[in-house]
Write a protein that binds this DNA or RNA. Structure first.
Lengths: 151, 151
DNA sequence: AGAAAACCTAGAAAAATGGTCGGGATTAAA
DNA sequence: TTTAATCCCGACCATTTTTCTAGGTTTTCT
């Protein structure tokens, strides 16, 4: 029941972009430095987010990345789903699972995983980058500095 | 965001024991067969649950395993925690984490993981083996058979 | 005694994680 | 037009975790 660094790094990077929203393209290197993530590794993660249409890229010198939509339009769930795959404590309740498992109707434990999946989705889909941006602004006003740093 | 087979197999096995509660000790082999789990593997999982005090064992011929408490006293959360470790989408919100990460106060993403952890715990702690047993009884009355089988 | 079962430990095979590396393509600025 | 910054892409790799397998020892019942 743990997220990998993919999801966590991805959210951190996207929050970084949200905090720089409206300021043009942000080079990956600067994100990686602020968030203390390997640049090469982050490059792989952001490629996924780009292909998913969550960020846009600007190539060439003075290029970089920027959010493809407004911060309010992107949720943590959007990011996690791209980087960690569909939210599903068990395969049989995967969000993109058409056939599901063939014993779902008879299966008791299925109920647990379904309930859990719904609960997780609800939390992650309820938090937008704009929400986090507001939190960061609040924290900053209280004199806190390290609002971006995290494991 | 997926449970490993440890957690899922563990819950299935414990539900199997719950459905046989009051009938003495149940040999591991029969659980493994009903649940379609490798007996050797399940042995390792149930050893953890035994050491955690969730099941008791009876050695020797006609031995086996049985729940150490009433089904109503054991929650899915109890089982998952033993087999998968503390419920924590990120280390900084681990339930047994004293020091936490030293930037928690300044950290925005921490809020996400904390909220998520609480939501997951709430679901898993709210479901007892007795609840599942009732579901199984209901399903059985409706003529369903495979109530134990699952991925 | 013999069989059935829990108990224990070592490791193997496969997958996932968390990177690293090298080069190529594109573009703004000097 | 050159150069430097930057994205883009694919390959590779070490480590850890997961999921089992195999084999033995001990205990207890008939």
């Amino acid at each position: 029941m743990k997220l990998s660094t993919k999801g966590r790094y991805g959210v951190k990077a996207m929050l970084d972009l949200a905090l720089n929203y409206g300021e043009g393209s942000i080079p990956l290197r600067s994100i990686a430095e602020r968030q203390d993530i390997s640049e090469n590794y982050l490059e792989q993660l952001i490629a996924v987010l780009r292909k998913a249409g969550l960020v846009n890229s600007v190539r060439g010198a003075y290029g970089g990345y920027l959010l493809a939509k407004e911060p309010a339009e992107i949720t943590v769930g959007d990011i996690i789903r791209e980087l960690e795959g569909p939210i599903a404590p068990a395969d049989c309740v995967a969000e993109d699972n058409q056939e599901s498992c063939n014993k779902v109707e008879d299966c008791i434990t299925h109920l647990i995983w379904k309930e859990l999946q719904e609960s997780i989705s609800e939390v992650l889909d309820s938090i937008s980058l704009e929400d986090l941006r507001q939190e960061a602004i609040n924290a900053r006003q209280k004199g806190k500095s390290g609002y971006l740093y995290h494991i």
